Simulated assay, not measured.
Amino acid sequence: MENKSYSYPMDYDWTKEEMTKVINLWRAVELAYEIGIKKEQFLISYREFKEVIPSIGEEKKWSRQFESVSGYSVYSVFQESKKTDKKTIFMDDNKGNK
């Protein structure tokens, strides 16, 4: 993995459990871009994230914040997870992503 130096977007009103669920999704997205992640593992992280942030508008807001600091798109990884038959998601860096 690359040595990244950024802070995850976070709402400090969330409980520790909620923060963990959100951080797990951020990490899952990073893995999808950097080394690959099992599709089922990503989907579990995404479902838990949606327990914390069920609103589409809020999801977009937080995902944009994460993408602005990391360069990684939650939306792109989620779309890939829906369309691929592969068991592992690996986002190709040649798609213009970091």
Rank of each mutant, 00 (worst) to 15 (best):
Y75S: 15
E59Q: 14
T84D: 07
V52N: 02
R27Q: 13
T15W: 11
G71C: 03
A28Q: 00
D85A: 09
I35N: 13
E2F: 09
Q65F: 13
F90H: 08
N94C: 07
D93C: 07
P54N: 13
F42A: 05
E58F: 12
P9Q: 00
V52E: 05
I53H: 07
Y75F: 14
P54S: 12
Y33R: 14
V69L: 14
N94S: 15
E18I: 03
S5A: 06
P54E: 10
I37H: 00
E48Q: 08
V29L: 02
K16D: 08
I89C: 01
W14T: 09
E34L: 14
Y72P: 08
W26H: 02
E30L: 08
V29D: 01
E48L: 01
Y12E: 14
V74N: 03
A28F: 01
K16Q: 13
D13L: 13
E48S: 12
A32L: 02
P9T: 05
M10R: 08
K60R: 08
S45A: 01
Q41S: 10
A28D: 00
T15Y: 06
A28R: 02
Y46D: 01
G57P: 11
Q65H: 12
D11I: 05
I23P: 01
E18H: 11
M19P: 04
Y46N: 06
L43N: 13
R27N: 10
K39R: 15
T84S: 15
E34A: 12
D11F: 02
E40P: 01
V69Q: 12
F42R: 04
I56M: 13
S5H: 11
S81C: 05
D92F: 06
V22Y: 04
Q79M: 10
D85M: 11
K21R: 10
L25P: 02
N3T: 02
E34N: 15
I56E: 15
S68M: 13
M10I: 04
N97T: 14
A28L: 09
V74D: 03
K61I: 09
I35K: 10
G57L: 14
V69G: 11
K82C: 03
S63W: 07
L31I: 05
R47F: 07
E17P: 03
S45Y: 00
N97Y: 15
F90V: 02
N24D: 11
K38P: 04
E58L: 13
G96D: 12
I56G: 11
W26N: 04
F66A: 02
I89R: 01
K21S: 13
I23M: 07
R27E: 07
D13Y: 09
R64N: 11
S76P: 08
D85P: 11
Y75R: 14
A32R: 06
W14L: 03
K82F: 11
I23Y: 06
S7P: 03
R64V: 06
Y72A: 09
N94T: 15
D13M: 12
K95I: 11
R64S: 08
T88Y: 04
K87E: 14
T20L: 04
E58A: 12
Q79S: 11
S45M: 00
P54A: 08
F49P: 06
S55P: 10
Y46C: 01
R64H: 12
D11M: 02
D11K: 06
E51I: 09
S7L: 10
V29Y: 03
S73Q: 06
A32V: 05
G36P: 03
Y6G: 02
K83L: 12
